[in-house]
């Protein structure tokens, strides 16, 4: 590239770091996206590390799951810290993804050549949401069972493939040991793999799009952008530690012993807007059960949200307004659900 000596460097790792460091990052919006993206990557790394640690003690069976989580919190050194950080980093990841996407819409940053980055970004956000939802089910509380029932019922409403999907999710006709093992497999296997892949694609895209030549509008990735990213990461850790020390993630009793009914169970905050839609809808819409209509609409809506920049190549203001309204509706629904 610019420095011919790099190619002949006998130390390949140093050569790679050098090349990466020599990348030029745009100032302004571009730099902000780099920092936000680095926070997302950092939180994914935190989740992976703490997740591996938690997996050392987790036992995926209906009888043991809750007790094994309690064992981590009570008997394992730093167990409460690891669990709390894993919990808050997951929610932080959702907030970071949401903020990045919202800001991308505001700045119309999804326009060419970044349509692909937008698709990946929505993918990361969606996968993070699934990670948080499946993770919350692992302690097998009453809420886990009800969420497993509701989500598999909703999946069962998807046209054509619904029943197959439901069977795949539960591994049987009702939530039990097999469903729990599947939830763990998805949470700790399939989703992290997909998430890593999506993040990697985003990083490659970003690297491919960086300007080759240093100019007034760019700064080098190392050290200027890298220092900003490490400051952001350190600040993230401080926030995580404060949250973990002062807000203990709740752990309800095992569904095995809980006698409480479905009453008093609330959906997780990031799913609340869907819950609101389901609640507000009449029992049947245009002669079809409304759960089926809404599930289909949600699937189509998410698809459209992820793919619209591929169609709207110019990035029209009208489209931006539509997406903003949709985002505002989701945020509004979430806030309403949180307040109720």
């Amino acid at each position: 590239m610019e420095d011919p000596s790099v190619d002949s460097d006998p130390k390949p790792l140093r050569s790679l770091l050098h090349r990466l460091g020599a990348l030029n990052v745009p100032r302004g919006d571009g730099l902000a996206f780099v920092v936000l993206f680095s926070v997302v990557v950092f939180l994914v790394a935190v989740e992976a590390t703490t997740g591996v640690l938690l997996a050392l003690y987790y036992r995926p069976s209906v009888a043991d799951a809750n007790a094994s989580v309690r064992f981590v919190v009570t008997d394992v050194e730093y167990g409460a810290l690891v669990r709390a950080v894993h919990h808050w980093a997951a929610h932080g990841l959702l907030v970071a993804c949401g903020a990045t996407l919202a800001w991308a819409v505001l700045r119309r940053a999804y326009r060419a050549p970044n349509a692909f980055a937008w698709v990946c970004g929505v993918g990361v956000a969606f996968l993070a949401m699934l990670e948080t939802a499946t993770g919350a089910m692992l302690p097998w509380t009453r809420q886990s069972v009800i969420e497993a029932e509701i989500s598999s019922t909703l999946a069962g409403q998807v046209p054509v493939v619904g029943p197959l999907l439901r069977g795949l999710m539960l591994g049987g006709s009702e939530p039990g040991d097999l469903a729990l093992a599947r939830i763990l497999g998805v949470h700790a296997g399939a989703l992290p793999m997909a998430l890593t892949f999506a993040v990697l694609l985003l990083a490659l895209h970003a690297a491919g799009c960086t300007p080759r030549k240093a100019s007034e509008q760019t700064i080098p990735l190392a050290p200027n952008a890298a220092l900003r990213a490490s400051i952001a990461a350190a600040a993230t850790v401080i926030v995580l530690l404060l949250l973990s020390s002062f807000r203990t993630p709740p752990l309800a009793a095992s569904a095995e012993v809980a006698r409480a009914s479905a009453s008093g169970i609330k959906p997780s905050w990031f799913l609340a807007f869907m819950h609101q839609m389901l609640e507000a809808a009449p029992a049947r819409m245009i002669g079809i059960p409304s759960a089926s209509v809404i599930t289909t609409a949600l699937v189509l809506g998410f698809g459209a949200f992820a793919l619209f920049p591929l169609v709207d190549r110019r990035g029209s203001r009208a489209m931006q307004a539509v997406v903003l309204v949709a985002l505002a509706a989701i945020v509004g629904g979430t806030i309403r659900a949180l307040l109720s």
């Binding site: 989580v69 309690r70 919190v73 993630p249 709740p250």
Partner: peptide
């Protein structure tokens, strides 16, 4: 205590 996940 149990709500906070502690097991004694």
């Amino acid at each position: 205590l149990e709500r906070d996940g502690l097991r004694v």
